[in-house]
Design a protein around this nucleic acid. Structure first.
Lengths: 199, 199
DNA sequence: TGCTTTAAGGACTAATCAGTTCTATATTCA
DNA sequence: TGAATATAGAACTGATTAGTCCTTAAAGCA
């Protein structure tokens, strides 16, 4: 057993592919572009990833997992729950200053591109939304306990509201809205959940 | 001069094309699908619309103009500015019950698909955002005068905030979120701008 | 040395794509 | 009637697509 070991960096190849899909979408990204960016021959590509579609699904899953890990880490490391929320939103405007922050959300981009017609994509989207919502629900509940968010609000709905605004803000970033504009909106979002009572 | 008059309905053809692009996006929609839905021969298609890209740009422009006309009409016909805002958001959840309400926003879908790489698309997007924002700014200012929204808030930022949440909610609708969920979030959005003070 | 696997590259397939060209027919007005 | 335009349909082009196949070389381990 045991043959020649893989020469290229699998992680780097996935990242290169993800970056391309993230900027261009699935359909618009050609195999040639992938091979170029991933620095792979066609042979190595198909031996490792089977197909363009399969690679894409793996990139999506990895993106999902990574983003959830990042958020959990951010919540766990934050001084308070409301601080986590505040930081999450202010990061959106900071990131919008770099091209990499103007790619939107890979999963939302994909949902827009594929809409209803791909079950695997829909599954990954639902999993990601569920995980994200859970983290924000925890944060909101915690902020309610410490009195920063009104207890009259349903934490699940506030979480959905926050996720919705993040989707909107990331879309705006992809569309080219200024970092300043995104910062202003983000501030209003955070202020609104702090001051709002009764659902 | 004067030859045989056009037999097919131009308006209906545009609408059929727009519906297809709206659901599927530009790249994924093939010429064959367009000819089928528009009920046109290839000859008539190219004679009338020149190219797939040109038709798409016209569909986008028409969508932009129509949506702005609709919003202006809604604002003008509403009992009050805050009522216009409330109705706009409750319509989002009502529409999400029908498949036609789960297509998202054609312009935002297009921006996600094309991102930075198409100037004409970017222009239409900016025009639409500007018009939409202007209408909401008017509504917010009016609601501030009548005391329903705090005068400490910047109407331009509140307008941007509302546009952002609409984008987020329409994306969620396209992604398949339930009408109930959208209604809950929409209610929170409206409540948040009514109760929030200081920007 | 053999077995196994990776890698690189070139040739190729089969499908699909938007768009063009051509012929024949239909319908309007002057 | 005749000029002008619309319609229909078929044939075709040229480019691009993802994916397969095959050959040759390299690199690991037993």
């Amino acid at each position: 057993m045991a043959g020649r070991p893989r020469k290229f960096n699998l992680e780097a190849a996935y990242n290169a592919a993800t970056d391309l899909f993230w900027v261009q979408g699935y359909e618009t990204t050609s195999l040639d572009q992938l091979l170029l960016m991933m620095q792979l021959s066609k042979s190595s590509f198909y031996q490792t990833f089977s197909s363009k579609k399969n690679l894409f699904e793996q990139c999506l899953s990895r993106y999902d997992e990574q983003s959830v890990v990042d958020m959990k880490k951010a919540l766990a490391g934050a001084p308070s729950a409301i601080d986590f929320i505040r930081t999450t939103f202010s990061q959106l405007s900071a990131e919008a200053q770099r091209p990499s922050g103007r790619r939107g959300c890979l999963i939302m981009n994909t949902v827009v591109e594929f809409a209803q017609r791909d079950i695997k994509v829909a599954r990954i989207f639902k999993r990601n939304i569920k995980s994200t919502k859970k983290i924000f629900t925890e944060a909101v509940t915690s902020a309610q306990t410490s009195g920063e968010i009104s207890e009259t609000l349903d934490p699940a709905i506030v979480a959905d509201f926050l996720v919705t605004t993040i989707i909107g803000l990331k879309s705006q970033a992809r569309a080219g809205s200024s970092s300043k504009k995104i910062a202003d909106i983000a501030d209003l979002v955070v202020a609104s959940i702090i001051n709002t009572t009764e659902s």
